[in-house]
């Protein structure tokens, strides 16, 4: 089953916290990590990153790898400069009260 970013939003409790131009990107696979070098080394184009990290470098890495989006778990307080940069990069950012493991479980149950 091919998942899109939009479908994820409909099926699991995610809040889109920025204003990307499109949320119809397809998702290659889920990638969960809180270490950016690990993400750089192993994530692939159109993956969706699930992480507790919410600093500006996450966006640098997401843009470098052309990820489909980023899900911040445990409802973090995402700073306005991150949201602004994500809009510029046209990168969907989501916030969820769920833990990383819970997000993965929910998405896996959709497939």
């Amino acid at each position: 089953m091919v998942l899109t970013v939009k479908q994820l939003m409909e099926d699991i409790p995610l809040t889109l916290i920025n204003e990307p131009k499109t949320i119809s990107k397809t998702i290659n696979k889920l990638f969960a990590s809180d270490l950016l070098s690990h993400v750089i080394g192993y994530a692939e184009e159109n993956d969706i990153l699930i992480t507790v990290l919410n600093n500006i470098n996450v966006l640098g890495v997401a843009s470098l790898l052309e990820l489909s989006g980023v899900i911040f778990t445990h409802n973090p307080n995402v700073k306005p400069d991150i949201i602004k940069r994500a809009n510029k990069l046209d990168l969907p950012l989501f916030s969820t009260p769920l833990s990383t493991a819970e997000v993965i479980k929910k998405i896996a149950s959709l497939e």
Binding site: D34, L35, L36, S37, H38, I40, G41, L53, N55, N57, V58, V61
Partner: peptide
């Protein structure tokens, strides 16, 4: 704290 320091930088560059 900024998400770096996994010890993957040089191996990633080499790859």
């Amino acid at each position: 704290e900024n998400g770096f320091g996994a010890g993957m930088g040089l191996p990633n560059i080499e790859a």
